[in-house]
Nucleic acid binder design. Structure first.
Lengths: 212, 212, 212, 212
DNA sequence: GATGAATGAGGTTTCATTCAT
DNA sequence: GATGAATGAAACCTCATTCAT
């Protein structure tokens, strides 16, 4: 019967992990990154301080986990995009939609995470150590492909696809900070989203017909 | 007699302020935001810790001062732009040049400042309390005018000028974080700057002739 | 049937005890006393943390066990010395050889143990509670006999044998700390050993002929 | 009038230092090294925790300070010994008297300190980094001179003076631990002291006439 | 009996701010 | 107005021990 026991354990463990995730996200939303202390996190998740350290080596690992966890969905969605035989402009628009929706939904969490990731020197180095640890790198890679295709097929303006991709992400990054984060919680972000799409699509793709 | 004494005082005071500014910027550049403690600031400026508190109520005020001080130049430059009888597209490009140059020059300082300003909940509220306290608001206002003109004259794409302005600043903000901050100190940012200009100008202004 | 089962149990239990001993000694050797945490001990011995507590009430008991276990050999050897009809000087030298050899071999372990035993107030009291719990007390008792004989036969200098014995052990104790412990791992301790023997033998036994 | 002010400050500072020293010694005496936490030290000295860190960078520095401070007297005394034209045996006895008296007086403090110094890996390295930082090194150096003289003049037994010196100090070290520390607080240590002197003097100096 | 996740008291250190001189 | 020692809240992290499975 060890099978059952193991399963139970796994379930319990994942429950605690989940509780920690939820608690952390909640704190970020309400009090910002400064409120995310180990004490508060433990209390908010309903576990002892030491327990948190059974799940994460240190605070940095928690932020990493949060980052990865809160991007899981959108990473899957972007990765699921089939590039073959598709118009790069359409692909850019589709992925932009995915990303913007995701950002609107998780604005607070993402905002806090990006800031943490940028802020902490050690953490930035950790993230850059291996390309693969940088949260969201999968998205960047997929998008690079789209930019490459768009440029090579002439559907995008000429330019270095890698640089365009970087500018693209920088823009999204800025949007999170400046825009969504500062907006009132209840404000309808749809107008802003439209303006951003406009900038990006016109900015990268030459005139002609875009999705009306 | 009191007249002269007052002047002396003012001069001395402004010298200390200046020393504090220089010291703070130096620390930010070398050690990042985390290194900016009151102890280090005072020591680096060559004054006592208590003296810092004679000039600034608390740490937040210092960061505010830094923000304002390090944008003074570019604010003046942007404000000096004469909008009358000029082509909005040209104006957009000119101001973009001003802003990007400024950003490249002061990347480290600005990066640290923006992050602080975003991060701290209290500080954000303080900044929003009165429109006028938000550092750089003068630039935002001037740029809004440009966007308004561009849209109304048809030189820019149709849209809400206020929203476009916000997207514009968000993009610049993102650029600072993602781009300039992460780049190696010695990396030549000119290619990135070009890509950004491309995005912005094409993104906001309809095809036709742009500055070659 | 129960007989066999009991035996099995005993064997298993002693195996675990042995594993714990080996693991503890290994940790002491490599990382010093600070590395000896219950977590590391359990992991290193290949058992669960809780299991350790089935074998030892608490951490202090482990250190006690280590102390006793690592002196077992030398205790047996010293106890095996036949005092009857022997020259006390010879006996002193023989037992000194035994003890010094032992110390050189197990310097790291013994060093860590002695320090722990000295340090912890509770533990010291526990050790003194009953004479019999003090690790190595058998050696002390045997040596007292030798000193008694040596003094009463005039082969040793006059003095209180108990006090001489205490000084003798204190010296050995100091040697472990200062000498063997600090020496490089590869250093040849033979010169030091010779110097110690010299001090002890000349110090306790009046001139004449010693083992050349 | 800055002169007076500076003096006052110096006095105040040295008073706090003194208070910290006294408090630390008191804690060591009563609760052993484990009781010496920053919290307790601060409370016991009547200052805030942060204040302790204004005087010592970290805990290790405190222990170092204690070590140096509690050996100051005896270091001065030993250094004051005039080696010229004196009998090495007499010198050995005199310095031994100084050291033993000192040890009897400060047994608890010294015991705790030696143990700390031995125990902490980092600290041991710190002490050994430069010969000069090892507390008490002045004594060791002076004594080496005595041993050198004693051996070269034939007043001591033949042998490597450096090694003899090391054995000498190891013995004293062991004495502190085993002997004085374990003895009841009220016990008269004079008999023990006599036994130690006997061991050392006979151990290092060949028969003949010693101080009666 | 074995397991190892949970516990939480306790440790060290940092740093913005105050205030007597 | 300048000074900087004192403050103490608050942060992160460790680890011996317990206990439900």
């Amino acid at each position: 019967m060890p099978r059952l026991s193991d399963e139970k354990k796994a379930v319990l463990e994942s429950m605690t992990r989940e509780a920690l995730y939820e608690a952390a996200v909640g704190i970020l939303r309400e009090e910002g990154l400064q409120g995310l202390t180990m004490d508060r996190l433990a209390a908010s998740a309903g576990v002892a301080k030491g327990t948190v350290y059974n799940y994460f080596r240190d605070k940095k690992e928690i932020v990493f986990f949060l980052a990865e966890r809160s991007m899981e969905d959108v990473i899957r969605q972007v990765q699921a995009l089939d590039l073959e035989g598709r118009d790069p402009v359409e692909l850019l628009e589709e992925s932009l939609d995915l990303l913007l929706n995701h950002m609107v939904e998780k604005r607070k969490t993402l905002g806090a995470l990006f800031r943490t990731l940028c802020e902490d020197v050690e953490m930035r180095e950790m993230a850059c150590e291996s390309r693969n640890r940088r949260p969201g790198h999968e998205i960047r890679e997929k998008m690079t492909e789209i930019f490459r295709k768009g440029v090579s097929t002439g559907r995008f303006r000429p330019g270095n696809p890698v640089m365009m991709n970087a500018v693209f992400h920088a823009t999204l990054h800025g949007i999170i900070h400046e825009f969504i984060l500062h907006a009132d919680d209840d404000a309808d972000p749809s107008e802003a989203v439209a303006a951003i799409k406009d900038l990006i699509l016109h900015g990268f793709c030459p005139e002609e017909k875009k999705k009306p």
